[in-house]
């Protein structure tokens, strides 16, 4: 096992564990590395969010083993996981009446006591992560008054305040305009590199992922999960196979998808 590996999956099966478990995927193998920015790509309905939720311990792994550091993920308690894995999700919520600062403070939840009182250490962490993502000047603003990009930054700051090794993001760029998308990718890449976090995001912004992510996980019903560095997967033609069809072609040099003429 690579010393920088934070999450390792071996022969993992994922899906919904209702009465008749029929896994979406079986035999997935993957490793998430510290200090790297990884994108999970796949078409709609491929199961990206399911994989992300399984990694976050929100739904059970149906087979194989997911290890977080040296222990199986399922042996971690709620609070334990919260200290190791932070998330940014697409969930609808009623948090609009919270201030940015209050949201970021929520990231300290797994560390604070029964009534959630913040220590001076907690406050220092909150200040630092707000500056890190560039949202400190909006600390006293309601979430509902933020732009979509600022709102995502506030939630990223919340995840950073959890001081977890891993940050999982479910389509954080979905509602953003192009400049904000690129800014978001650059920010996450910097956080991974400078803070030593293992960052995994799902996204449909394939071209940004191809140029700005260190590693790709390609998920498709036909070929399962393929992992590798961005350069490897492009060189092997996996990216091309994944998204190209009769109408779409891939320009390897410029890392762009184009209509087939």
């Amino acid at each position: 096992m690579n010393s920088d590996a934070v999450i390792v999956g071996r022969s993992v099966a994922i899906g919904y564990s209702d009465k008749h478990p029929s896994p979406l995927y079986t035999d997935m193998n993957f490793t998430l590395y510290r200090g790297e920015f990884t994108a999970l790509l796949g078409v709609n309905g491929a199961g990206k969010s399911t994989l992300l939720r399984t990694l976050a311990g929100m739904q059970p792994c149906l087979g194989g083993e997911i290890r977080l550091h040296d222990r199986t993920l399922s042996t971690y308690g709620n609070r334990d996981i919260a200290r190791h894995i932070g998330t940014v999700l697409t969930e609808r919520n009623v948090a609009g009446g919270l201030l940015v600062e209050e949201l970021v403070a929520m990231g300290r939840y797994p560390y604070t006591g029964f009534f959630g009182r913040l220590s001076s250490d907690d406050r220092a962490v909150i200040d630092r992560v707000m500056r890190l993502v560039g949202i400190a000047h909006k600390r006293g603003t309601y979430l509902s008054q933020l732009s979509d990009g600022e709102r995502q930054k506030a939630f990223i700051a919340k995840a950073l305040a959890q001081e977890s090794d891993v940050i999982l993001l479910d389509e954080p760029t979905a509602f953003l305009d192009l400049p904000s998308r690129i800014e978001m990718f650059v920010l996450l890449g910097e956080i991974a590199a400078h803070e030593g976090k293992a960052i995994l995001l799902t996204t449909h912004d394939i071209e940004q992922a191809l140029t700005l992510c260190d590693r790709l996980w390609l998920l498709s019903a036909e070929r399962g999960l393929q992992c590798g560095t961005t350069d490897e997967l492009i060189a092997r033609g996996d990216v091309e196979t994944m998204f190209c069809n009769d109408h779409i072609t891939f320009d390897t040099t410029h890392r762009r998808f184009l209509p087939r003429k």
Binding site: R53, A56, M58, G77, N78, R79, D80, I81, A82, R83, I85, G86, T87, L89, E91, R92, N93, V94, A95, G97, L98, L103, M106, G107, Y109, P110, G116, Q162
Partner: peptide
């Protein structure tokens, strides 16, 4: 307070 963010966020913050 954690539930204000929705159940999944609350779960990720360590709430049962």
């Amino acid at each position: 307070n954690a539930l204000l963010l929705g159940e999944r966020y609350a779960c990720n913050l360590g709430v049962n």
